[in-house]
Design a protein around this nucleic acid. Structure first.
Lengths: 340, 340
DNA sequence: TTATTTAGTGCAACCGTTTGCCTTATTAAG
DNA sequence: CTTAATAAGGCAAACGGTTGCACTAAATAA
């Protein structure tokens, strides 16, 4: 009916139409107790009649609160991260927040830029998972200084305050290795991730300790640190296969590298799991579907995302930093690649 | 040094410190040609000294532009969507926009709510992929009325103006079916998606027409429309396996249902592809990795996301609706599940 | 010398809501 | 019948930047 496309319908338009003040309109729409029911309903009706929709930009400015949560993650296209983001989104939305996604693509510089623009956006809080390259976290100082809570999950830094949602990487790696040993492997190898990154350090540590505990030697070149990209995986596989003492049990630090290895091993004349057993840290739906199915240490991505968001929202609303370490349980999924 | 956590450092603080006006500061920071280089650099220096960071909320309000793009998608956890979102994010960010992600979880009501809050957020544009349930698109009218461009990809509606990025579902289905026929299948079945949703209609149509063209009959119950959830897939497989004339070639309307079917078929005494061939519409990395690898019609998720974002940004900046249909090529990936 | 341009800056309104405080009318209490 | 309390609503100043217009002084043209 009326010109709804004339640009913006504001509370002033409603006020004018009703012969009342803008503050009354604002209070009515916010259901303030200082306004009579009668006025409130007149306002509501006029609001729909004029096609009014709250302008959150203006609202944010005057309230100094955006109800926006920034999410910085390495990337979206792994099951773990997309689940985590799903969880974050779900909890955030339930609590009245929207999320702004930023992918660092595992690039430190990008991560820094993103922190900057998220601060400029005046997000009420941030949930972050550090890139593999990240070794320093000064780019988060803006948030800390301005009391904007930062929750971290998975790849976290304890140099920054705020809630941390993690799994016990050491334990996961330890148990995975233990499992391979229990399956009869004696020449264990680990394809590790970049060692500047804590989670990968811990996984390597767990691997080493499990060997030590079992009294098994770590053979030369059986622990390879890498970037876990496709080339690294291929090279590592080739290297191992060329070894005189080739591994008979392989633990990979990521799901994708495990999947790829299992695929590559077909090119060699080895039986899985009889000649060579596999287990990966991180589980993808695919792990279950391939032949042989790939054993894994499963991290609860959805839960971790939810928890990070929940603790973040708590911190935002209680105006604290929400400090605390929240350990989520990992699960050892034994499948055919290692069960013998 | 100075109290950086005193709340906000504004352009007024810079102005005061320098004894100049706020407008000069604003213009300096925006590198206006009307300000002398000397003043600009004094301003910049003072800005870093005071730890000033632009407040985008205030900026958005006064410019009536948020540089935010809303993204409405069914979910994040399929390769296709996470790739699409990656593409959207990348292009958006390059063009100076941030993205706000909303997952409808294939729920129409949620989709409507999201449109509302995105409008309230005053996003400069929206890229959307409709939920499976969506049959009406009135919830997008707010945007159209207020001249906020809406780009759609994959599951689109031509009832709304704006750029559409799609693949030719009919052709993809047709070619997939044709391929099964060429592989010698004669009793073809199609696990279709919800038929209120255009893309699934088109896929079913392509399937039917390919049969017709080849002079093959569509046997009773060989075309099942479903929701493509796990239960539907299991039921369909059971149904087909119980048929006297069981299919010898199956085309599934989604990647996940194809993957699941291929997994389920192991419980029966049939050889793939000899007794039963498979191909899915939509490709996951997993399709390549499983045994046998699963043939697929591949949709270029990343490209579609990039294209949608690009056309959206163009529309935003040229202040047009950006109408147009952009067809992205599909690719037939023949793998072991169907090659014989 | 006077008129005109131009570079550089300031003033103040505006973007749309929110909110502390003030005013008025009404009601309850004394 | 006065006084105090309460209810309902208005005023105006924020929130932090942006921008059209006005203004000054220096430079150029006539």
């Amino acid at each position: 009916m009326s010109d709804k496309n004339k640009s913006e319908v504001t509370i002033n338009d409603i006020a004018r139409a009703l012969g009342i003040s803008a503050s009354t309109v604002s209070r009515s729409l916010n259901d303030s107790s200082k306004i009579s029911e009668k006025t409130k309903s007149r306002v509501r009706e006029m609001a729909v009649e004029l096609g009014y929709e709250l302008n959150l930009v203006a609202s944010s400015l005057s309230k100094s609160k955006t109800n926006l949560i920034g999410v910085i993650i390495p990337r979206l296209n792994s099951q773990f991260f997309s689940q985590a983001v799903s969880g974050i989104e779900e909890v955030a939305r339930q609590s009245g927040y929207q999320i702004i996604i930023c992918q660092s693509n595992e690039d430190f510089t990008k991560e820094c830029e993103m922190a900057k623009v998220l601060y400029s956006t005046r997000v009420d809080g941030v949930v972050a998972c550090l890139s593999k390259e990240t070794t320093t976290v000064e780019h988060f100082n803006v948030f800390i200084q301005k009391k904007v809570p930062v929750a971290m999950f998975d790849r976290v830094s304890y140099a920054i305050e705020g809630p941390k949602v993690v799994v016990d990487n050491y334990e996961g790696a330890y148990r995975a290795t233990e499992h391979l040993i229990a399956s009869g492997c004696t020449r264990l190898a680990h394809l590790a991730g970049p060692q500047n990154c804590k989670v990968f350090q811990e996984r390597a540590e767990g691997f080493r300790d499990a060997l030590k505990k079992a009294g098994l030697p770590l053979l030369p070149r059986h622990l390879l640190a890498s970037d876990l990209n496709e080339k690294d995986v291929r090279d590592s596989m080739a290297l191992w296969m060329g070894l005189k003492e080739a591994p008979d049990g392989i633990f990979t630090a990521s799901a994708t590298s495990g999947l790829l290895m299992l695929n590559l091993v077909r090119n060699y004349n080895v039986r899985v799991p009889e000649d060579m057993a596999f287990i990966s840290f991180g589980n993808e739906p695919c792990n279950e579907l391939i032949t042989p199915s790939l054993s894994a240490v499963d991290m609860p991505g959805l839960d971790m995302g939810k928890a990070a968001a929940k603790h973040l929202v708590d911190a935002i609303e209680k105006k604290q930093n929400g400090d605390g370490i929240f350990l989520k349980p990992i699960q050892l999924l034994i499948r055919n690649s290692s069960f013998r």
